[in-house]
Design a protein around this nucleic acid. Structure first.
Length: 420
RNA sequence: GUGGGUGUAGCUCAGCUAGGUAGAGCGCCAGGUUGUGGCCCUGGUGGCCGUGGGUUCGAUCCCCAUCACCCACCCCA
């Protein structure tokens, strides 16, 4: 048998319903903040990601799905979407259009990493980006939008972690200070941190190794190194968040792995998942456009990893996304089928989710089937009912049933439980 | 890429450390008579024991290899 390839999976009902639900809520909430959907290709020139995400990052150096096109062009399946959105902005000269551009996207991304709980090689993200401005209110708006999104999904318990990692003006000085502080104690740091000291000093800051903590606590804070512009931006953002009652934890040790981030970074975590507790992350990337060879275009965005997100949601709200049959139409006697089918059509036209069997079943069997598919109601259409224009509508949960004429039945449909 | 774990019925697993070609629960199907589900009872269906080699008279069980999945690390969100 041919099976799914490693790190990919089929998303089956009811989980697929949960994905669809989470996506529909995102569309609805983001729309209220005036975001439009953008759909970019799932594959791009590999160079796009090498230049934006960073040549030296693991994502590009060993986790990207790259392949050569027939003409020799190096292509890659997108490992994330921010670079593509900025590319699209530049390619279509959107900088010439008035105002800011607010986009959201959703779809599959690809990374060739070893699969793990909630992590796949084809994974799904929902993200949003605002391009064309760097007002701190934009940062606040994006953060507000994503918390509103969580609220709409019924996720109340989460922490917003906030930091600023400066920009190309001020970060080098901080990195230098960090190296200076770490050098004397480097023998005391864990193996990973000793390596990071060379490869990516920033990441020492979010080392989880217990023995490193005392030293890390002594290291300088990025916030003390922000230049005037970055500092002012961050202060203003914090003031706005405070003003709107959006509580956050100042987390100077939270850094980003991707090269393009500047200034604001944020992350939302939830205790519901244990160690891998991050639900989403985002930040500002004011230099990304230029890294891609474009004019200066400021931007900020975030991305939610849906696979893990859905995992959390299914734990706290198991029924979310379920959409069972609302009306099961059971018919009795060979002459009843056409009328039963006609009623089914009419019910469907009013938006009710209906199912009708094509082979005649004993009523007992029909009810049993309806029960197994969690049907809310069963409509019984026998030859007697047709003759009397009086159909039996059975409430499966309550076990009660009532007689209704065709017009009464159709009038009742809007009150059936279930979607819409 | 590294380390550990697991692969037996549709699902969750037992059996394997006394090697003799398999069990439970759930599910599924059919009944418990005539047009009323869920519960209960009865019967039934169902497995090349991941795959390929080896040892053996004989292997689900022992050995080797391989593949897949899971967990963790690395990394990242």
């Amino acid at each position: 048998m041919i099976k799914t390839i490693r790190g990919t999976r089929d998303i089956l009902p009811p989980e697929s319903g949960l994905f669809a639900y989470v996506e529909s809520v995102a569309r609805e909430v983001f729309r209220r903040f005036n975001f439009d959907e953008i759909r970019t290709p799932v594959f791009e020139k590999a160079e796009l990601f090498a230049r934006s995400v960073g040549e030296e990052t693991d994502i590009v150096s060993k986790e990207m799905y790259t392949f050569t096109d027939r003409d020799g062009t190096a292509l890659a399946l997108r490992p994330e979407a921010t670079a593509s959105v900025v590319r699209a902005f530049l390619e279509h000269q959107m900088g010439n259009e008035p105002g800011l551009k607010r986009f959201y996207y959703l779809g599959p991304m690809f990374r060739r990493e070893r699969p793990q709980k909630g992590r796949y090689r084809q994974f799904f993200q929902i993200g949003a980006e605002v391009l064309g401005g760097d007002h701190p209110a934009l940062d606040a708006e994006v953060i507000e939008m994503v918390t509103e999104y969580l609220r709409c999904l019924g996720i109340q318990e989460f922490s917003l972690l906030l930091n600023s990692i400066g920009d190309r003006q001020c970060r080098p000085a901080f990195l230098q200070a960090l190296r200076v502080a770490a050098e004397p104690v480097k023998e005391k740091l864990c193996e990973n941190c000793r390596r990071r000291l060379v490869t990516n000093p920033l990441r020492i800051l979010d080392c989880k190794e217990e023995s490193c903590q005392p030293y890390i606590d002594q290291f300088p804070s990025i916030l003390d190194f922000l230049c005037a512009a970055c500092g002012a931006h961050f202060e203003k953002l914090r003031a706005l968040l405070d003003e709107r009652g959006l509580r956050y934890q100042l987390t100077p040790r939270m850094v980003r792995g991707l090269d393009y981030y500047t200034r604001t970074t944020f992350e939302i975590t939830s205790d519901l998942l244990g160690a891998q507790n991050s639900l989403l992350g985002g930040g500002r990337y004011d230099g990304l456009s230029e890294m891609l060879g474009g004019p200066p275009v400021k931007g900020i965005g975030f991305a939610i990893g849906l696979d893990r997100f859905v995992l959390v949601l299914s734990q706290i709200r198991p029924a979310l996304g379920e959409d069972p049959v609302q009306l099961f139409v059971a018919w009795l006697g060979p002459k009843a089928f056409s009328k039963a089918y006609e009623l089914t059509q009419k019910c469907r036209q009013t938006g009710v989710r209906c199912v009708i069997e094509f082979e005649e079943l004993k009523l007992k069997k029909a009810l049993s089937n309806a029960d197994r598919m969690k049907a809310g109601h069963v409509l019984i259409v026998g030859e007697d009912e047709i003759a009397r224009n009086s159909f039996q509508l059975k409430d499966m949960k309550a076990g009660s049933q009532e007689s209704l004429s065709e017009s009464e039945l159709l009038a009742r449909l809007s009150s059936l439980p279930g979607r819409l």
